[in-house]
Amino acid sequence: MVAWLSDWLRDIIAIILLAVFVELLLPNKAMQRYARLVVGLFILLTILSPILKLIQSDIGAKLDEGMKQWSKTAMSSDVQMTGLNQITKNAEAISDKRELEAAKLTERTLEAAIREELIQSTKATVNEVDAVLKWVTISGRPTPYISQVTVTLASVQDQANAIGNGNAVESVQPVIVQIEIEPSANDASAPERGEASRGAEEESKVEREGGKWTETDPATAGAIRKAITRGWGVESEQIRVRQPAQQPVNK
């Protein structure tokens, strides 16, 4: 009880001292009247604080809220000029856009480079290379890394056309495989996920996107993987090699 009383008295004394200081600091008489009103309200609030505590426990929070609201309205009534915040926000948006462009460009360049390299080193007919870049923040700067590379080989027909009629045997193979796929085409992507993580030769076995993609022969896939892993340091699990399924004879 005594401790509480002394606390209360100390608060009152402190706020009155503060009030005296403020009166001294104020520049002129005209302002003093108004400042005295506010300081007097504070003193009143301090004296009333035990009652306030009895009735409602959160005067401090309420006061804070009121002050925040006040400063917000004071801010919004300021001259409508493009604030520094707005400018920085705009700058961020612009730099984000630029980064996106840069990422796109990087991706395209990377894809072109991989494709070139693959064609040179493995002699495969690479139709398309799709590299997916992801961003990690290393010491404050977003840094790209290659999360997945999908290599699409030319379909077997095209390949056969391109190479000529030399290896007719190879063009037959995929047809058989495609029939193999079909029964399990219904069970959706879950097996594919599992398969993707299992390993190189199994991964290349089937690509079941509605039967659109078919296997590539393991030798080519392995060579492609090796080339990409060597050139760009991509884990071989992150590389998918696929080939469009051979269309049923379209003549």
Binding site: R10, A14, L18, V22, A35, T46, L63
Partner: peptide, 26 residues
């Protein structure tokens, strides 16, 4: 002074704002 006694910081903030406003206006 305000820190040593237990008066809420919002009081001091308001009082300082008042002083500032008074000086600038003057």
């Amino acid at each position: 002074l305000a820190n040593r006694s237990g008066i809420p910081s919002i009081y001091l903030k308001t009082i300082l704002k008042i002083i500032g406003i008074a000086y600038i206006a003057e």
